[in-house]
Design a protein around this nucleic acid. Structure first.
Lengths: 178, 178
DNA sequence: GTCTATACGAAGATAGAC
DNA sequence: GTCTATCTTCGTATAGAC
């Protein structure tokens, strides 16, 4: 049930993900959702966000321990791989939810996800040899830039703006670690 | 009428901006909107987007002709100034609309805005001495990173992540122009 | 515990009087 | 041309049968 909600969130966004669609996707019934999630949509969305956030960047852990440039390159490549998967439509769910949510609870949950992503990437970069003073900022830059570039790609239905940004990030990392 | 819609869009986002609120804000009537905008909400939103896009970055033109680092610094500062104005709530309207719109027309209009922003900034940077090969990419990076960082700031209700990103952008520009 | 039916409200859009 | 009243659709949430 949470998985179906997560898929729909990723594909269509927060407002567009209605219980009606979750029901259609899962085959379950309306009342059953409220039995498992008494707080309704907010509760379901929170769980779905956690699931998405965890799954999204699990692959990067496979590169833990390598040098900072390699980590960064794979991280950006992972973002890039999301674009065709979402058919240039969805972008990042956490971002979409953040800018559209009217519930403080959900925004707070999204904020936790963003922070976790940044802290983990900063840690990986630092372990990969990046100066401690730049690690947090550099991680924030990479994720922020990828988020923004993903939106460009979605709007223009083209990989070009994303690839331009990725190239600049590569240059920046090369400078910092060189 | 368009101005009221633009204000509401900036403050509350696409889905949250209803005709009811536009009516309340302007004092006009429901039928009157459809008289001036036969295509309804889509048409009104398109006009509002154009208005917002034009107004948002007009101030940067005052710095035209200065060196690339100065241009970039003022550009980022301009983005930063949006945060308190939107009370950390709205973020960038064009971004919000892009990720939430279900109308191809509106997304296309947003794409035009993004492209125009990038091209103008690239031009200013290049006139400010930035290498032609980096101008387009660097402009894309700056705008993408600011968009992403704005979302972080909104989610965490803090300037810190934005300022981290801004510092990295400053470093990057210093490297490219140094 | 799971389902059906329905209440309740909001939003977009339209009709028709003036 | 502008306004009031209304229609339709859709989404969340709940009540109550089994």
């Amino acid at each position: 049930m949470v998985e179906a909600a997560a898929d729909l969130l990723a594909e269509r966004g927060l407002q567009a993900t209605s219980f009606g669609e979750v029901i259609e996707a899962t085959g379950t019934s309306r009342g059953s959702i409220y039995h498992h999630f008494p707080c309704g949509k907010t509760e379901l969305v929170e769980e779905a966000l956690d699931l998405l956030a965890e799954k999204a960047f699990a692959p990067i852990e496979a590169h833990a321990g390598r040098d900072a440039q390699t980590i960064a390159r794979h991280y950006v490549e992972l973002w890039r791989s999301f674009i065709p998967g979402f058919r240039l439509r969805g972008g990042c769910v956490i971002l979409t939810v953040t800018v559209t949510a009217d519930s403080e609870q959900i925004i707070d949950r999204a904020a936790v996800v963003f922070r976790r992503w940044r802290e983990r990437l900063a840690q990986l970069l630092q372990e990969g040899g990046l100066d401690e003073r730049h690690a947090a900022g550099c991680a924030a830059l990479i994720i922020a830039a990828c988020e923004g570039a993903l939106v460009f790609a979605r709007a223009e239905r083209s990989m070009e703006p994303f690839d331009q940004v990725a190239e600049q990030l590569r240059l920046h990392l090369a400078t910092l670690t060189g």
